[in-house]
Design a protein around this nucleic acid. Structure first.
Lengths: 199, 199
DNA sequence: ATACGATACGGACCGAGGGTCCGTTTCGCA
DNA sequence: TGCGAAACGGACCCTCGGTCCGTATCGTAT
């Protein structure tokens, strides 16, 4: 059941591909004009190597994504408040969404590439399930809020890569303004609903 | 500058393609395994004809989509309340979103195909601009609500085709339940925010 | 009716890109 | 240093969106 360690040329090539792909995606306007052949060439590697290491295009994207996501996941899993566990939900939910937004702002092209990659909708990705589960759990502990499940989906939809790209990229909304707008929206959702308007 | 009437064989073929495409998308699980050649064959037409009539894949999808959307647009533009104009915003906003949701439920495959079609993000489509403009305008008249622009984006994100497909299709959430969940979420957004929790 | 220009037809053809295959090279262990 | 296993790499294949152009059809002027 234990996967044995890969040969060291394999490991080296894997790193080279990851680095090359990262640079390529960062440097190009749109993700879909970077071909697998481009990545292989930039990494100084054959296409066969690339596909053996990552399976397919989606696999490469996912590997890159997970790498970048690592620090955020760490902060969420065991960092200090307001992101870390043990934060009271009403405060943690906005922090989580802000973290997702910032992540997508910092990795626009990559997130975009992964989300619009045809193979399966974004909703099947396991990282989506993680965020959704986390959020739902937190939401269900917010007093007065019913249906944390749908609310989690809806809130995550507000930070989808292509929307972020549209606002931050095409419409040129500055980072801090976008964060503020999202924060306000999240606050509305958390404070609204039946009972909130009561005396 | 007036486009002259098309030849009648052209018109007939256009209809045939539209009908064939409609049937194909309705009958297949996933949109991307329907090729342009499939559509042409099903319509009893050559590929050349298909591409001359619609330009490209996106053009075909858009034409289909607009056709289906027509009644809804009509109801919004000049129908009775709560969808039509002249409805007070607080009541119209949920109605608009419910209409979008229902439309996507009734045209799941098609909406999915159009949204995940690589050519440009969904946010560049002019029908998105229409919905967004309409919603923003209505939202800006809802008392206590600031930033109708972002709110409109966020609310529309909650009814995106792939999310709807995920919930209604993959998770099997029944139509009415989904509508109820969305309605509740929209209400939270509309009633929440600063001031709503007043004295 | 007929001739003729304009328009549309249709399927062979093309190029791009994701993914595979397999002869050759490298690794790592004894 | 020998040898089997693992990895390499790029030629190759296939699908699919999109184009091209010789042929068929339409509509109109005569």
């Amino acid at each position: 059941m234990a996967e044995r360690k890969p040969r060291k040329d394999a490991a080296r090539n894997r790193m080279a591909v990851l680095a090359a792909a990262d640079a390529l995606f960062a440097g190009h306007e749109t993700p879909e004009d970077i071909t697998m052949a481009d990545v292989a060439a930039a990494a100084g590697v054959g296409k066969g190597t690339l596909f053996r290491a990552f399976g397919d295009r989606t696999g490469l994207l996912r590997a890159l994504y997970e790498t970048r996501l690592e620090p955020v996941r760490e902060a969420v899993a065991s960092g200090p408040p307001p992101l870390g566990p043990g934060t009271e939900p009403r405060r943690r939910v906005p922090a989580l969404l802000d973290a997702v937004l910032c992540f997508k702002l910092d990795n626009r092209r990559l997130a975009l590439a992964l989300e619009e990659d045809g193979s399966g909708s974004p909703y099947r990705a396991e990282h989506y399930a993680r965020w959704h589960g986390l959020l739902r759990e937190a939401l269900e502990r917010v007093p007065g809020l019913t249906d944390g499940d749908f609310t989690a989906h809806a809130l995550l939809a507000a930070v989808r890569a292509d929307l972020v790209e549209h606002l931050a990229g095409r419409e040129g909304v500055p980072r801090e303004e976008l964060r503020a707008r999202l924060a306000e929206f999240v606050d509305r959702v958390l404070d609204g609903g039946p009972g909130a308007a009561g005396p």
